[in-house]
């Protein structure tokens, strides 16, 4: 069976990565910002898995890294959501533009 070439996967992961960066900069809602960060983290998981499968199939280093990275990003999201909920309790919304008490 013909495999999908590696470049196609890398294009997908790169698009996800830059979409995540774009979203992080432009989104107006904290949850949306968090989702963008998750896009960045997930794109790296694809990268690891693809490099492992196509270039270095002898070892499983990339796959393990993917597993750890998924776990850690889940933890990170949990904490981030907890903090966002705390913000909601304090100022009753989660818009980025209302987080302006700390500035020069």
């Amino acid at each position: 069976m013909e495999l999908i070439p590696m470049e196609y996967y890398l294009v997908v992961s790169s698009i996800m990565f830059f979409a995540g960066i774009y979203g992080f900069i432009t989104r107006k809602n904290l949850i949306a910002v968090l989702i963008s960060v998750e896009l960045v983290l997930t794109s790296t998981d694809i990268n690891f898995a693809v490099f492992n499968r196509f270039l270095f199939p002898g070892h499983l280093e990339g796959m393990f890294f993917t597993l750890f990275s998924i776990g850690i990003s889940a933890a990170e999201t949990a904490v981030a959501i907890a903090i966002i909920i705390n913000i909601y309790r304090n100022i009753k919304n989660v818009e980025v533009r209302n987080l302006k008490k700390l500035k020069d």
Partner: peptide, 11 residues
Amino acid sequence: EAGAKFILNAA
């Protein structure tokens, strides 16, 4: 607010 700024930037 500082916490949100920190965790999102750190992530």
